[in-house]
Structures are given as structure tokens and as C-alpha cells.
Design a protein around this nucleic acid. Structure first.
Length: 734
DNA sequence: AAAGCGTTTATTTTT
DNA sequence: TAAACGCTTT
């Protein structure tokens, strides 16, 4: 038996050993916080004889939970399986399945994803005769989500309405919730809100769980929202052993309503909390750490950290400018190849990170062209692909016939002659009779000609066929193993035949369906109902990072957000440009808080690197066809010069290269040297922004960066002289 | 009812 | 750019 405290530094040891009362661990990147959490749990179980089932640990992704559990199994054997470990959402789903009865939630409830939610919102808006152009469903949904994250129910939200938009939201929220409740469905936010309400209104139930959980731990605390923190407090309310781990500098999910103030609230709510700070980095080279620290230091709303490392200085950070997106990707892959050949670096050691998913395309294409294997994280999520969701919708209805979003989705999938008009009339009929859609459908079986049926005999026959199909499948669902049920659905609904008929994408779609069946196979050991429920829950709560396989060969393509918590020997961050990182939105909104979050995102990306870090950008990026000229990210200028090699250290870059294997792009109309630099005070004209006055013009690479203040509320723009279609209206006096 | 066509429009991050 | 929408045709 190894000693659990061996090999820990004093601060880590302090965190592991503080087991009585609240504990806040501020853990810098690479400071071994997972190690601390794992050892702390093992210490509790092995040395202090806490029963594993009395510990709950909440992680940010299912993957993190799985890995932690695996490590714990190695330390303490199979009893690690008794630990409660998962994301907030998964943990709450578990609690609600067990206790939901108390708040009128049937255990077969369906979890609605973003797409399902939008369907409901649109339906509600139609019902309330709200113009989706005036009020974007997206925006309404986001506002509702925000309210829920702060534990505001529809009623409570209504009391706080401040303006007309919120008034509209309030009405939609009310009806939206009615529909969800009636469908025995919850959305992501409900998983949290309803858990909170369950405990809030049923102190007896809360007490049972409070008794059970002697220790509550929360990882990635900086990215929790108000509801999540409230639940953590509820659960730990009795024993007060709440341990939270986080790093304010790595808070990057405020757009998902994460509230960095939770850290301050924690200190206020638990004034006796012990705080441990982990600032020694075991991951990165000195160079990487210094550079990242320099970038994050520019944030004003933060507590300064001093990160240290005993790791070697390591190689310089490479900053590269490519002509366009394709060349950027090509540079990255050439470099990957070079490292593989000369540095004996394996593909799986390399990751390319970017701000937006759209950027993955150029990278993917380059991988395919050059023949480098890759693992794409995210993009179009597996469980959200149309054909997969269609099959899942059938399964959801079989499990929970009240799920009207799914029922509406499959009524005519594959096409069976039930058109929008028939569906509308069916919905109307259900409303009129006060029945669910499903009950109305089943009722059609006994319909007699006296009921004036508002559709043609042909439609009626189609509807009856559908009813019988579902009834047959429901019977089979009772005894079939999940994978076989998937098979039955694909076969009997005619989806297989329908997909086969699609020459273009049919094959790929069938493969996806087969993959779903394989995923279902994992739950074949469970009994039919349990297996079905587990598959549906997995489909709803699985994230893409969860599926990332470190063992698999290939470079990783991943967004900066998803990269949180991961590490790679070699990291490329692509698209270091104004408008991308920081994102245009943070610039346009001129919101310092958003801008600081962009900077944190950059920091998170940089600190993923263990040995080598590359920051790349493109002069032009395909956006609406013809590439627009781009300006270097402001974050690049925060890098200490001596840590950088490559173009951006202000040395002139190589002239834009032409790619040989593609048709040459047209040369820009004006090459830099033909255009005399402008001077401050010059009056210029831009076809889009109109007239403006030059504020500044400085040499940048083999070009000039011009800052122009435009009139007409266009604001101040930074442009590249060679690419901006500027014409001089008037020279300032000289 | 369904496929096909042209137009618009909006561009982040995801449990 | 490309997705999503709405309109028209078959």
C-alpha cells in the first residue's frame, strides 16, 4: 500500500488532509488538482474509513468523472465504484429519477436538448402569436435558461419583469414550462432547478441525502452557475464538508450562465473555510508558463497569481503568419509531420485548438490531403445528427409517450403521408379533447364515422398505420434488449429502407445508426426498460470530449472551450486574430468583462501545452467567400519578445506564398509598396464605412496598419493598408 | 404531400 | 458560406 501523501507538495498535502469543514482550493493550471482530488478521496476512504458511497464528487465532464474513477479504482480497488461521481447534470438526473415523484415527475422523464427546446419555444410563440422575427426564439430561450440558472421559476421571473422583452419572455416561459411538464420532460436547466426545488420543498428528502453525503466535492468551481452552487450547498448542508476546486483565471463559461462570483459567495457563505492555493505547475515548460502568465496578467479584474515551475525552459514559442486559412492549416500539419519525423513526437501528442468550430474545416481538409490521422472533437454532435435523433425520438416515445416533441418529430419520418396540415388538425383535436397527442392517436382506433374527421381517408389510413406501428414497438420494448429494440425501430419504421434509398448520404447515415445500435449494446445486460432509460440518458448528457480517446492515434482538433482540463505535449492555437480571438462579439460589444473572458480563453489554451506551443494566424480568412484581411490578435502583443521565435516578433514575415497545388489566388490589387503610407489627419474614403480621418498609421510587417476614425457611427477601425480599399480624399497639411 | 428552388441572413463557446 | 427559411412546382 502506497502512502497517499507521498509525492505531494506541502500545499497539495494540506488540501488532502483538510477534511473537516469547508475548503476552497485555488488551483492554477497544471498544479495537480486532479491528483489532489483523487488523493483526497482515497485518503478519506482508506485512511479515515469513510464509506465510498458517502462521498459525492461533481466534475465538469463525464470524461473527467470516468478518469477520476479509474484512478481511484487503482488506488482503492472496486469499492471506488460506490462513489457518486459525474457532472452536475448527470447527478441531478440520477436524483430526479429516484425522487422526482415528490414533485410530480415520472421516472421515465425525457431530457430535452437544445433543439427540442427550440421546437417547444417556436410552438409556444406561434400559439401566443409572437413574431419570431421580432423576438428571436434563440434569445428568448437564452433568457429563460438564464432565469432558470438563477433559480427563478416562471412565476418568480414574472414578478421581476423590467421591460417589454422580459414581459414577452415571461409569457413564453410560463407556457413553455406548462408544455414541458405536461410532456413529462425536462430541459438541461430543469435538471438543476427541479433538483433544487425538490430539496427546497421537501426537507425530509433533502435530509436523507444530506445524511448520506458526508463529503461533497466540486471541480471546476469557477464554471458553476448559481443553481449548481445552491445544490452543492444543500447537499453539504448537514456535515458542512464542502470542498470546491477552481481557478478564476480559467473561467470561460459565463455565456452558459456560469457565475465566477460563486467563489466570492463561497467565502462569504463559509467564512470559516480554509483556502489552499496551488501555484506550482507540473505541466508546462518555463517558456510556456511565462508566456501564458504574461497574457493573463493584462486582465484587470483578477487577483494576481504567481505560478512557478521546476520544468526546463523548453523551446521558444513559435508565432506564425500564413497567407490564408488553408496555408495556416498546411503549416500546422507540416510542422506536425516534422515533429513526428525529427522529434519522434507521436500524432496523439499534438492538438490544434481554435475559437470557433467553423475553423476545424480547413484543418480537417489539410489532414485528409496530407494524410495525417485526426480526432475531431465536437462539430456536429453524434447524438444530434438527424438520423440518430430520429431513432432516438422513437425510443423516447416508446419510453415516455407524453414526449410530444419527439412524437411530432417522427409522425412523418420516414415520410408516410402525414403532412403538416394533418398534424395541425391532430394537434387541434388533442387540444379540444384535452388529451395528449399520443392518447388522441390511440383513440383514433375506435373512431366511428360519426366523429367528423377533418382529414381524408388516405391520411386516416396513414395515421392508423403509425398508431399500430408504435403499439407494436411498445409491446416489443417490454422484452427486447436495447440494441435489438434499436434494430426493430430502424427496420419496422422503414427508416432503413428510406436511408438506403438516399444515394448521397444514405451510407453514412446508416453507419451512424449502426453506431447507435452499438452504443445501445453496452446496456444489453440491463433489463429492457432500464437499458432503454440508460441509453436515452447517455444520449442526452454525453458530451463530445467524453468520447475523446487518448489511445487512438491521430492529432486532436478541438475548440478552446472543450480543451479545458486537457493537456498535450504540443499545442497549436490557430486563428490568433482580432475578431476571432478575441471574438468579434467581445470587440463589438465593447464589454470589458467579455474581453477578459476571451483573454482567459487564450490563457486556457496556452496552458494546455506541456512542451511546445505554436500560435498561428492568417492574413486573410475565408469569410463570405473572398477572404477578408485580418489583424493580429491583441493577445500576441502581450507575449514577451524573448520567448518568441517566428514572424510576429516584428521581423518582417516572408512574403505571402502561393500554394502550388491549388489554382493561384489573384494577387491583391495593391501591393503594399505601391501605396504610400498615410499620415494621421489624412482624410480617406472607404466604400463601406464612408469617410474617415486617419488616427494612426504604423508599419506592420511588410504592410501598414492604419487606424481610421469613421463618421456616421461606424466607429474606429483598424485596417491593413494593402488590403483595405481606401482612397485618399485629402492629405493633411505638409 | 414532397421536392426543388431562390432568397435571406447571420455568423461562439455547450452540459 | 451555408444554413435555414419560404415560396413554387410537380
Amino acid at each position: 500500500m502506497t502512502t497517499l501523501l507521498e509525492g505531494l507538495n506541502p500545499q497539495q498535502r494540506e488540501a488532502v488532509q483538510h477534511v473537516d469543514g469547508p475548503l476552497l482550493i485555488i488551483a492554477g493550471p497544471g498544479s495537480g488538482k486532479t491528483r489532489v482530488l483523487v488523493h483526497r478521496i482515497a485518503y478519506l476512504v482508506r485512511d479515515l474509513e469513510v464509506r465510498p458511497w458517502r462521498i459525492v464528487a461533481v466534475t465538469f465532464t463525464n470524461k473527467a468523472a470516468r478518469e477520476m474513477k479509474e484512478r481511484l479504482e487503482r488506488l482503492m480497488g472496486p469499492q471506488a465504484r460506490d462513489l457518486t461521481m459525474g457532472t452536475f447534470h448527470a447527478t441531478c438526473a440520477m436524483l430526479l429519477r429516484r425522487e422526482g415523484d415528490a414533485i410530480g415527475l415520472d421516472r421515465t422523464f425525457t431530457i430535452y436538448d437544445d433543439e427540442d427546446q427550440q421546437d417547444v419555444i417556436k410552438q409556444v410563440m406561434e400559439e401566443l402569436e409572437l413574431d419570431p422575427k421580432r423576438f428571436k426564439p434563440q434569445a428568448i430561450l437564452a433568457t429563460i435558461s438564464n432565469a432558470k440558472s438563477q433559480l427563478l421559476t416562471a412565476e418568480e421571473y414574472r414578478l421581476r419583469v423590467q421591460n417589454y422583452f422580459e414581459e414577452v419572455v415571461s409569457r413564453v416561459y410560463q407556457r413553455y414550462q406548462e408544455l414541458l411538464d405536461r410532456a413529462n420532460a425536462v430541459d438541461f436547466d430543469d435538471l438543476l432547478l427541479k433538483t433544487y426545488l425538490l430539496f427546497h420543498h421537501h426537507p425530509d428528502i433533502l435530509e436523507r441525502w444530506q445524511d448520506r453525503y458526508l463529503h461533497v466535492m466540486v471541480d471546476e468551481f469557477q464554471d458553476t452557475n448559481v443553481a449548481q452552487y445552491a445544490i452543492a450547498r444543500q447537499l453539504s448542508g448537514k456535515h458542512r464538508n464542502l470542498c470546491v476546486v477552481g481557478d478564476p483565471d480559467q473561467s470561460i463559461y459565463s455565456w452558459r450562465n456560469a457565475d465566477i462570483r460563486n467563489i466570492l459567495s463561497f467565502q462569504r457563505d463559509f467564512p470559516d473555510a480554509k483556502t489552499v492555493t496551488l501555484q506550482h505547475n507540473y505541466r508546462s515548460t518555463k517558456t510556456v508558463l511565462e508566456a501564458a502568465s504574461a497574457v493573463i496578467a493584462a486582465n484587470t479584474q483578477r487577483i494576481p497569481q504567481h505560478l512557478t515551475t521546476s520544468n526546463p525552459q523548453g523551446s521558444l514559442i513559435t508565432v506564425t503568419e500564413a497567407y490564408n486559412e488553408e496555408e495556416e492549416a498546411q503549416f500546422i500539419l507540416r510542422e506536425v509531420e516534422r515533429l513526428a519525423k525529427t522529434q519522434n513526437q507521436s500524432y496523439r501528442d499534438c492538438a490544434v485548438m481554435y475559437r470557433t468550430n467553423a475553423q476545424s474545416r480547413a484543418l480537417e481538409e489539410a489532414c485528409l490531403r496530407i494524410g495525417v490521422p485526426y480526432k475531431l472533437v465536437g462539430g456536429v454532435k453524434f447524438y444530434q445528427r438527424r438520423e440518430v435523433k430520429d431513432v432516438l425520438a422513437y425510443l423516447r416515445v416508446l419510453s415516455n409517450p407524453g414526449d410530444e416533441v419527439s412524437l411530432a418529430r417522427i409522425l412523418n419520418v420516414p415520410p408516410r403521408g402525414i403532412g403538416t396540415k394533418t398534424v395541425d388538425q391532430l394537434t387541434f383535436m388533442a387540444r379540444a379533447r384535452g388529451l395528449s397527442l399520443y392518447a388522441t392517436l390511440e383513440g383514433l382506433d375506435q373512431a366511428n364515422p360519426a366523429d367528423n374527421i377533418p382529414w381524408t381517408p388516405r391520411s386516416h389510413k396513414a395515421l392508423m398505420g403509425f398508431v399500430h406501428l408504435l403499439q407494436g414497438l411498445r409491446r416489443e420494448a417490454e422484452h427486447l434488449q436495447v440494441a435489438d429494440l434499436v434494430e426493430a425501430v430502424v427496420e419496422q419504421t422503414g427508416m432503413r429502407a428510406h436511408l438506403k434509398a438516399d444515394r448521397q448520404e444514405g451510407e453514412e447515415r446508416l453507419e451512424n445508426v449502426a453506431e447507435l445500435k452499438a452504443a445501445a449494446g453496452e446496456f444489453n445486460t440491463l433489463d429492457s426498460q432500464e437499458g432503454l432509460a440508460t441509453l436515452l440518458e447517455r444520449a442526452a448528457l454525453m458530451s463530445d470530449v467524453d468520447k475523446l480517446d487518448e489511445e487512438q492515434q491521430g492529432i486532436t482538433l478541438i475548440t478552446l472551450h472543450q480543451a479545458k482540463g486537457l493537456e498535450f505535449p504540443v499545442v497549436f492555437i490557430a486563428g490568433m486574430e482580432e475578431g476571432l480571438l478575441p471574438h468579434i462579439r467581445a470587440i463589438r460589444d465593447e464589454d470589458p468583462a467579455q474581453m477578459e473572458e476571451e483573454r482567459r480563453l487564450c490563457y486556457v489554451g496556452m496552458t494546455r501545452a506541456k512542451e511546445r506551443l505554436y500560435l498561428t494566424r492568417a492574413f486573410r480568412r475565408g469569410f463570405g467567400g473572398r477572404g477578408e484581411p485580418r489583424i493580429a490578435s491583441r493577445f500576441l502583443s502581450d507575449l514577451p519578445r524573448q520567448l518568441i521565435e517566428g514572424a510576429a516578433a516584428s521581423a518582417p514575415p516572408p512574403a505571402p506564398r502561393r500554394r502550388l497545388d491549388l489554382a493561384p489566388l489573384p494577387e491583391p490589387a495593391n501591393t503594399p509598396r505601391q501605396k504610400p503610407p498615410l499620415k494621421a489627419g489624412d482624410k480617406v474614403h472607404h466604400p463601406r464605412f464612408g469617410e474617415g480621418i486617419v488616427v494612426r498609421c504604423v508599419p506592420a510587417r511588410d504592410d501598414h496598419e492604419v487606424t481610421v476614425a469613421f463618421g456616421n457611427g461606424q466607429g474606429v477601425k483598424r485596417l491593413l493598408l494593402s488590403y483595405a480599399p481606401l482612397t485618399v480624399v485629402e492629405r493633411s497639411g505638409r
